[in-house]
């Protein structure tokens, strides 16, 4: 299966290589046919299409490869590195493909045409990285099985679980920046894991244990090891911002939201079944969630075409997934509260 996936990626890249040659040949015709507005629109559409394909594909591929590393007995750090490398490689492939398919559009936008005025919006690309501090809030788990009262057999919750960043956030964006506002599409990845700690949780209901019957649950604590949960997320969404008065630098404030592809992995089946399965990936859930964030940052132009930026972003990522096995199967949900600082390099296309 893995080999088939790799062949697919190579085949796709070869296809984009031909596309690049073809697009270069037809550059003159394309220039004549495209207006600047059309070029900008096509640039966005193509970027979105490529990101929607490559980013989730490489993310899931990376998660699978990382999981295979764990199954193969490799260290968790190595598994994380495999995931990060694959995800970033996928984003790079998306960028290469985007460059090939949008060459004529970017060439057209580079020039100063008759439609371009001083008030025109500028199109840009950003490559960014960042560090963050995060914690899991309101971890809620409930049995997938219903009791006689129609409610889950048991429910449990922990108010807070400490986490640590596993890999710096990496992302790329394409956006437009106007005189007073801006908007951008962002694709980025983050990775966090839970620390070794004692989690005190609240629980009600009962668990059916073979041989023991119904065991009631109550207030309790659980010692979880380091990387009990390994959380990886791919964010694909949009940010909008307004420019603040320029003071040497260009500050801005904004909001962002988007869809998450979340991967939660563990060597343990779930909180309710804390028996490590060495050399296996007992929990490997991939689900869809969503994210909300605020933005506060500033840009500094370093040339006519380039700028650097720094950004502070408080964010909340929402996760839901199923964990556990057999009679201990459970639905889990939690919120990852993140305070992130991102920095990056931007390139104006027009």
């Amino acid at each position: 299966m893995l080999h088939i996936k790799m062949i697919l990626v190579v085949a796709l890249m070869a296809n984009f290589g031909f596309a690049q040659a073809d697009s270069t040949r037809n550059l003159a015709q394309a220039k004549a046919a495209l207006s600047r507005r059309t070029a900008a629109r096509n640039l966005f559409i193509n970027t979105v299409i490529l990101d929607v394909y490559f980013a989730p594909y490489s993310f899931i591929f990376g998660v699978a490869l990382g999981g295979q590393s764990i199954v193969g007995g490799k260290s968790l750090n190595r598994a994380n590195a495999v995931w990060a490398t694959t995800s970033i490689a996928g984003m790079a492939l998306s960028l290469l493909a985007s460059n090939a398919l949008t060459l004529e559009m970017r060439e057209m936008l580079k020039g100063v045409g008759p439609e371009m005025g001083a008030n025109d919006t500028r199109i840009y690309r950003i490559f960014s990285g960042g560090l963050s501090t995060a914690s899991i809030l309101d971890f809620q788990a409930e049995s997938v099985f219903l009791g006689e009262n129609g409610k889950p057999q048991w429910e449990a919750g922990a108010a807070e679980v400490k986490t640590t960043i596993s890999f710096p956030a990496v992302g790329r964006r394409i956006g437009v920046s106007g005189h007073r506002w801006g908007g951008e599409l962002e694709t980025s990845i983050i990775a966090h894991h839970t620390n070794k700690q004692t989690v005190y949780y609240d629980a009600t209901g009962f668990i059916r244990v073979p041989g023991l019957g119904e065991v009631p649950l109550a207030l309790n604590d659980i010692e979880i090891p380091d990387r009990f949960l390994m959380i990886h997320s791919l964010f694909m969404g949009a940010n909008v911002f307004v420019w603040l008065p320029k003071v040497k630098v260009e500050p801005y404030v904004g909001l962002g939201t988007g869809v998450l592809i979340n991967s939660v992995q563990s060597q343990y089946p779930g909180p309710a079944n804390l028996i490590q399965e060495d050399g296996s990936l007992a929990l490997d859930a991939t689900t869809v969630g969503f994210a909300l964030r605020g933005l506060l940052g500033f840009r500094v132009d370093i040339s006519d075409r380039k700028f650097v930026f720094a950004e502070f972003r408080p964010a909340r990522y929402y996760y839901t997934y199923e964990s556990g096995t057999r009679n201990l199967a459970e639905n889990d949900r939690f919120t990852l509260q993140i305070f992130e600082v991102q920095m990056g390099l931007g390139f104006y296309i027009n």
């Binding site: 919750g157 922990a158 108010a159 005190y200 609240d202 629980a203 009600t204 649950l217 109550a218 207030l219």
Partner: peptide
């Protein structure tokens, strides 16, 4: 208290 599964179920202990 963040815990609600005390003597009075459903209420913070």
């Amino acid at each position: 208290s963040v815990f609600k599964s005390g003597p009075v179920a459903g209420e913070p202990i």
